[in-house]
Simulated scan of single mutants.
Amino acid sequence: MEGFKAYLINECHKADNTVIAYMRDIGAFEKFLKTRGGKDLLDCKDSDAIAYVYALSNDNKSRATINRKISSIRAFYDYEMGEGEIDVNPFSDIKSTRNDKRDIEYLTIEEVNALLEAPDDTPKGLRDRALLEYMYGTGARVTEVVRLKFEDVNLRMNITTCKDGKGEGRIVPIGSYAHKALVEYIDKAYNAIKGDLRTDGDYVFINFRGRPLTRQGIWKILKEYGRQIGIEDKMTPQILRDTFAVHMLQNGADLKSLQELMGFEDMSVGIAYLSVMKVRIRDVYKKTHPRA
Rank of each mutant, 00 (worst) to 15 (best):
H13S: 11
R170K: 02
D93M: 02
E110Y: 11
D46V: 11
S71Q: 05
F208T: 07
I159C: 00
D187W: 09
V142P: 00
K166R: 08
A130E: 05
M248I: 04
G230Y: 08
I86C: 05
F76T: 03
Y134L: 15
A272W: 02
K287L: 07
M23K: 07
A55C: 10
C162Y: 00
D254Q: 08
N10L: 04
A181L: 11
L240M: 13
G263C: 12
C44A: 15
T236A: 10
L255V: 04
A55E: 07
D233K: 09
F29E: 07
N191I: 10
M157Q: 13
N113I: 11
K101R: 13
M157S: 15
M135H: 10
M235F: 03
A75P: 00
N191F: 06
Y285R: 06
N251C: 06
K101A: 10
I66K: 00
A75C: 14
G175L: 12
H13D: 12
D202A: 13
G175E: 01
R227F: 05
R129H: 01
R24Q: 11
R227K: 06
G263A: 04
D48E: 11
D46Y: 14
E232D: 15
A28L: 05
D283A: 12
G252N: 13
R280N: 09
K287V: 05
E2Q: 14
D121T: 12
I159F: 13
L274F: 03
A75I: 00
I20D: 15
G84A: 12
P123R: 08
I186Q: 14
G84C: 03
A6E: 13
E110F: 06
I229T: 01
R156V: 15
R36F: 03
E111I: 02
E168I: 01
R282D: 13
K45C: 01
K188D: 12
E117Q: 14
K95V: 04
I186Y: 15
A192Y: 15
Q238R: 09
V142A: 07
S96L: 11
A6V: 03
K69F: 02
H179V: 01
V246R: 04
P212N: 05
V183P: 09
T122E: 11
L155K: 15
D152A: 05
I20P: 01
F244C: 02
D43T: 01
K278C: 09
L131W: 03
N207E: 11
Y185E: 11
L255A: 07
L107C: 08
P173D: 15
D16I: 08
C12D: 07
L132T: 04
L255M: 09
Y185P: 01
Y190V: 02
K34C: 07
A118K: 06
F4T: 05
R156F: 02
D266M: 01
S92H: 03
I70Q: 01
M1E: 10
R24I: 11
I231G: 07
L222G: 00
V153W: 02
K278Y: 10
N10D: 14
N154W: 01
N10Q: 15
P212C: 14
V153F: 06
K256L: 13
I50T: 03
R156T: 09
H13C: 12
E105R: 09
A130V: 01
